[in-house]
Design a protein around this nucleic acid. Structure first.
Lengths: 190, 190
DNA sequence: TCTAATCCATAGTGATCGCTACAGAAAGAG
DNA sequence: CTCTTTCTGTAGCGATCACTATGGATTAGA
């Protein structure tokens, strides 16, 4: 039951795989690119992570978990406007950060539709809570506003990949905030 | 100088190539997929269109020209709000049309950054004109609003690819319209 | 009909794809 | 030490990638 221990750190290698998939997506990332980025030979990669599909699943799950943590943290803000502004601003900065690949793996990879749906659900729930709390007008359709936010973030990812600066992508987030209705004070006044 | 005429219609074959690239993008589209979709053997394809890169350039140029025509048509509306609403609405319907591939080749293909930049310039010009005409407040930054619109359209393309219905994608367009400032009547009144 | 020119279909080029067989190296168990 | 187990590196598997050499088919002009 004992044997030669593996010569690399699995978590470190996985983090390298995340970054490679993040930079080039699933289809455009070859095993050769992965082994090079991870500092591991093909047989070691397959022994530790299974095939390319399994490795991508594990890598994208890690990426997704980190993204959800950031979104959840933003969503805890009491004001939904602050929550959304925080999320969009953090997204803009993350997509254009110089120490990570540009854009967002979760938002751009065609395979991750289910994860995007989960994220959409998170946003919908937070917006629905804001509506019942009177933080947004009753006329707001939570799922539609959530779809809009997801679309804007996808657009920011694309802008970042096209070379947009942090300020330019932040401007998109700022402009999008104008589409979030104000609290329903006016509705009450009528 | 005479010779055997080609047995296929070049424009029809190019249209088929456009659709294939539209559906699967540049990298994921193989020559075998193209020859199958175009009804042409590889040597005929290479004789008529050059290599894969040249064919993609010609196909994406055709796609880009059609897109620009649609955008230009929407932009002729006298009111910039109507122009943008028309563009976003048409975009939402086009991205979810059942007789064409989902989403937008121009907005999603990484190689087409230059064409997106051209489109961004078109939008910036139209918005700048609206600002000088008093159709938008002077506080509006045309390039920033144009970036926002491009981001929203990219988001709509992604939503369509993820299986969003026409109504769901139209809702994104409708929500985005709320981010377009009203004309500067209020600014004048102050 | 004969020649020159151009296109088409078969078949295959080297390179790269994801993936793995094999054999030697490095550890614990006895 | 030996034995067993597991990992590592080389080297290469069949399949597919973009692309093309070759030869027969089909046209216009002489």
């Amino acid at each position: 039951m004992a044997g030669r221990p593996r010569s690399f750190d699995r978590d470190t290698a996985l983090a390298a795989a995340v970054e490679q998939f993040w930079r080039t997506g699933y289809e455009e990332t070859s095993i050769a690119m992965l082994t090079s980025a991870m500092g591991v030979t093909p047989p070691s990669l397959y022994a530790a992570f299974g095939d390319k599909d399994s490795l991508f699943t594990e890598a994208s799950d890690l990426y997704f978990r980190r993204t959800c943590e950031a979104v959840d943290a933003a969503m805890t803000r009491t004001s939904v406007h602050e929550a959304i502004a925080k999320m969009l601003g953090d997204t803009a900065r993350a997509h254009t950060a110089s120490d990570t690949p540009l854009g967002c793996l979760l938002l751009t990879e065609p395979r991750l539709t289910a994860q995007r749906e989960t994220l959409h659900g998170k946003l919908t729930d937070r917006i629905a809570r804001a509506v019942t709390d009177g933080d947004l007008p009753a006329s707001v359709r939570p799922d539609e506003l959530a779809s809009f936010l997801l679309a804007v973030m996808r657009g920011m990812s694309g802008a970042a990949r096209d070379g947009g600066s942090t300020d330019e992508v932040l401007a998109i987030a700022r402009t999008a905030m104008a589409a979030i209705p104000a609290e329903n004070a006016r509705t009450i006044d009528e």
